[in-house]
Design a protein around this nucleic acid. Sequence first.
RNA 1: CGGGGCGUAGCGCAGCUUGGUAGCGCACAGUGUUCGGGACGCUGGGGUCGGAGGUUCAAAUCCUCUCGCCCCGACCA
Length: 481
Amino acid sequence: MKENSNDFVKEIPKKSENISEWYTSVILKGELADYSPVRGCMVIRPYGYSIWETIQKFLNKSFAETGHKNAYFPLFIPESFLKKEAEHVEGFAPQVAVVTKGGNEVLTEPLVVRPTSESIICSMYSKWIRSYRDLPVLINQWCNVVRWEKSTRLFLRSTEFLWQEGHTAHRTAQEAEEETLQMLKIYSDFAEKVLAVPVLCGKKTEGEKFAGAVHTYTIEALMPDGQALQSGTSHNLGDHFAKAFDIKFLDSDNVEKHVWQTSWGISTRIMGAIIMTHGDDRGLAFPPLIAPTQIVIVPIFYGDKDVVLDKAHEIKRELAQKFRVEIDDRDGYKPGWKFNEWEMKGVPLRIEIGPKDLEKNQVTVASRVGAGKQQVALDNLSGTIEKMLEDIQSDFYKRARDYRDSHIFDAANADEIKKHMEEDRKGFYKTLWCGSEECADKVADETKTTPRCIDMDETGSGKCVCCGKEATKYIYFARAY
RNA sequence: CGGGGCGUAGCGCAGCUUGGUAGCGCACAGUGUUCGGGACGCUGGGGUCGGAGGUUCAAAUCCUCUCGCCCCGACCA
């Protein structure tokens, strides 16, 4: 390895040494995003936005399959709307941006820039819903929201961010709960199968739930530094908002009733999870299903340039029918430079084609994960590539899953959690819990972690992590982003 | 919002201690030789040194104020 400063790899901090610097660096150098002139706001560049579009594609499909329709509600919300639900306003008031002036006119009522849209959507639902025959209402919207955060990170926490927020209204509490769980399942499947990001599914404690919800379910991913990242949430809103916004329907028994609601969301934050989970010292690395570019073709040409290029373009056209594929036929960059460039940008599969390959009617293929290259015959190239991408996808998942599984530690009490952390064994701490908020808060306080989620499936028996009383639930603690 | 760090060419930095009118590497442009894992030679373009005041014959450098960004906490998706 040469020691000069054009050694590109050396410009990326080592992931293992300083994940924060590494994270910022790969996003900027990988051209996923850039800082904007406005504090806390980011520009999502085409290479990064493509990931968001793919996320939209997958989620829209799942939403549609479960009967949801997309719609759009306004950016501005009358300030008074936010105040209608007590917990809701308390939760969001410290974070909202408020517009007090339009043009030269001072507004009679200030408008908040939506931090989330429950209030404005509920105000519309109260207008639209009259009968049990109008239910359920199953609407999703893709939009931007603004939360005035004190400190920001690219993708993980920005003042303005993109997300989808589903808002549903149901006839019964049970139906709302089923919807809440259904969406949680859609999120966890999406995270694991598409993004190759393993997640813990669970329920939030009272202290951690959404402001205004009855309860909140979450998917929690584990980042390589042992910190948890809340990657998607699904809220059962009960009839809280229905009462606050007067959303009532006449049921078949001729009794007027409040609807039961849910809301659920995934934001651009999850792109931070993808980046951190899969990237390495060489830069970004994307699982094929989500990769902006799945395949890059690097033609290797000098003498018989035209022949190689023609063939490379022919292959590109063929593969482009099925995959997101780019061809790097730039002059003036040596092949080795291009290899490193595309590896840094996280492209899962690279196809090299040069004169030697042409002679043998083959291409040379290299995977972003795993070492070495292999020769692949041009006959049925598309089929072979498809299989390889599937394997790479599952390799990504397995690698992340192994890491996550080996970073869930059993702990009997706060001291054990502290001990683990001192030994630099950071991750999820799985503990038995009596169910009291005080106990969860106390452990969180003492260990500088937060309760991430309550296990929904597994139960045990033993002593509570805090008070020592009989406990059957498992709760996970971790430091969190 | 506390604690720390940093703003000099597109990027990464040096110069600041001890003031003398801006430099290096990469990138970029032209050109020739190269080309299957980050090539090289030659030539060239590019800066109101974050901003505003002040001190001085003279400020990137010293002083004051200010703006911004990053990291670590506290708050949050």
